[in-house]
């Protein structure tokens, strides 16, 4: 029973209380880069979930055989292999989005969340909790990605998933899409707002 509760915490904590983006402040660079539109943001989130979950499992299986002094290299090789698989899958089945995301799928390797989870969790836990931890952190990352992309696409382009949401009559009345939302600084400010709201709700993580 105790095992069950722990697994639950491992899976659900990263959603809010231990969110990799707004609490641990990891993976900010990719948030800036891929959140201009919702669709690539969701694909990116799913890729990160997949890579994170499976690399966690693999490293967890190998954890007793990896020599400590070369563990970073081993982790990188595992992540790199998975990223290449994800990239090829995207190129095969979602070509347009893969082109939009371009180099950022490859850069999942450098995403701090991955190395952080591998080092902090997979190296010390058995495969099943590691898998849950990977999926949980991936979802925590994706939630933030989607919130930021929602506001940036809505205010920056007037669309959601590429469909026009802001009615034409608004434009006729003089409304103009906010060009700053397309630029990276606005992603930082939105993440800042999310952190602000998150911390004012969860008083216990305020420093």
């Amino acid at each position: 029973m105790a095992e069950k509760i722990k697994n639950k915490a491992v899976f659900f904590n990263p959603f809010s209380k231990d969110n990799p983006v707004v609490v641990q402040i990891l993976g900010i660079c990719s948030i800036l880069a891929v959140t201009v539109k919702l669709e690539p943001a969701i694909v990116m989130g799913m890729s990160v979930i997949a890579v994170l979950a499976f690399s966690n499992v693999i490293i967890s299986l190998l954890r007793n055989t990896i020599p400590t002094n070369i563990r970073i290299i081993v982790q990188l090789v595992v992540v790199a292999g998975l990223v290449i698989i994800v990239n090829q899958l995207l190129l095969a089945f979602a070509y347009d989005v893969a082109i939009q995301l371009s180099v950022f799928i490859g850069l999942i390797i450098t995403n701090c969340i991955l190395m952080g989870r591998l080092e902090a969790f997979a190296m010390a836990n058995s495969p099943w909790p590691s898998f849950l931890d990977g999926v949980g952190n991936g979802i925590g990352y994706t939630i933030i990605l989607v919130i930021v992309a929602f506001f940036r696409e809505l205010l920056g382009s007037g669309t959601l998933f590429g469909m026009q949401v802001v009615p034409k009559s608004f434009y006729a009345a003089g409304y103009v899409d906010n060009g700053l939302m397309i630029l990276p600084p606005m992603a930082l400010i939105i993440v800042g707002c999310i952190i602000w709201i998150h911390r004012s709700i969860n008083k216990d993580i305020q420093e």
Binding site: V176, N178, G179, L180, M181, L183
Partner: peptide, 10 residues
């Protein structure tokens, strides 16, 4: 600056 970058057309 906000106006300049957000609404360059205006």
């Amino acid at each position: 600056a906000f106006l300049f970058f957000a609404y360059p057309g205006q």
